[in-house]
């Protein structure tokens, strides 16, 4: 390998090519109309993604017993398909539903990656709460479910993408750079898996010590730290390691709630006179521009 690699002889060349293929596929999918073209684009895009995966697997280490690579790949494919549909679907409601698909796929990968608590939290919070809010708002906003042409509920601004070529080009560069980062980034850590495993064991033992009640029912001879679950670890992390952040997160939520309430209050449209009265400025002349006076 040349000591000063240029772009062309970089080891990531296949990655770039795969990303380009994926980008081209996405671009084709993004063009409105021509269903065949879009289908072809979907195939090409998936192929590109597959190539990406394959290329990265070539660079990756051995398979880990606890992480099933095939499952991961399947969930990844599902997630990507969902994401692409979010971006391309002309009807917002469906886009939101596809987003739920992506969330589900992500939750599944979380499961595979031993983050059980997060997997379920993701489904509950994201799919259950946030996405439902989105759907609710979408439905609130869209009062015309169907028009004559047959594009059901699709406004023009939902059907026609904005500057797809530029966006995809940008995306390609981003993905290419991310590839370089994925490939090179871990080198900075320079930590082998063994050390990581050892540390995990240490932390689990520590957790076990701090939670003696849970270790009571363990069979004889087993390591008490084996019984420490993912939930317990995360919980311990939250309260023991990041308590301030946790509090701050609470404050953020609180403020968001306040914000939402205030925004909702503003939706009660008052006439100008009433507003003046409410503000205690009954006699004054306010110079409010026309469009500022509300869309009532």
């Amino acid at each position: 390998m040349s000591p000063t690699p240029t772009f062309m002889n970089a080891p990531l060349m296949p990655w770039y090519i795969a990303a380009a293929i994926g980008a081209a596929g996405l671009l084709m999918v993004l063009r409105p109309g021509r269903a065949a073209m879009r289908r072809a684009g979907a195939v090409i895009g998936l192929a590109g993604f597959g190539l990406l995966l394959a290329e990265s697997l070539k660079l990756a280490g051995p398979a880990d017993q606890s992480i099933s690579t095939p499952f991961m790949m399947a969930f990844a494919a599902v997630g990507v398909i969902g994401a692409v549909r979010v971006v391309t679907h002309p009807r917002p409601v469906f886009a939101a539903i596809y987003f739920i698909l992506t969330v589900l796929a992500a939750a599944a990968t979380f499961l595979v990656l031993d983050a059980e608590f997060l997997a379920f939290a993701l489904i509950i919070v994201y799919a259950g709460a946030i996405l439902i809010t989105y759907l609710f708002v979408l439905m609130l906003a869209h009062q015309s479910p169907e028009d004559e042409i047959g594009h059901i509920g699709a406004e023009d601004y939902d059907r026609v993408p904005r500057e797809p070529f530029v966006a995809v080009l940008l995306g390609f560069f981003l993905l290419a750079s991310l590839g370089s980062a994925i490939e090179r980034g871990p080198e900075l850590a320079r930590e082998n898996a063994a050390a990581a495993t050892a540390r995990l064991a240490e932390r689990k033992a520590e957790a076990a010590k701090s939670m003696p009640r849970l270790t009571v029912a363990l069979p004889e001879g087993s390591n008490p730290s084996d019984a420490v679950s993912n939930v317990q670890m995360v919980g311990l992390d939250l309260v023991a390691k990041y308590p301030a952040s946790l509090e701050l997160a609470g404050v953020v939520l609180l403020m968001a709630m306040f914000g939402a309430v205030v925004l909702a209050r503003r939706q009660i449209e008052l006439g100008e006179d009433e507003r003046r009265k409410a503000a205690g400025m009954g006699g004054m002349v306010l110079d409010v521009p026309e469009h500022e006076r509300g869309g009532a």
């Binding site: 690699p5 970089a10 981003l174 290419a176 370089s180 980062a181 090179r184 080198e187």
Partner: peptide, 21 residues
């Protein structure tokens, strides 16, 4: 995003240049 990409690309390229060989 373009700025982000540029920064990222530059950082990656630096690393590529520094350690890739």
């Amino acid at each position: 995003a373009g700025g982000l990409v540029l920064v990222l690309a530059w950082v990656a390229w630096k690393w590529l240049g520094a350690t890739g060989g």
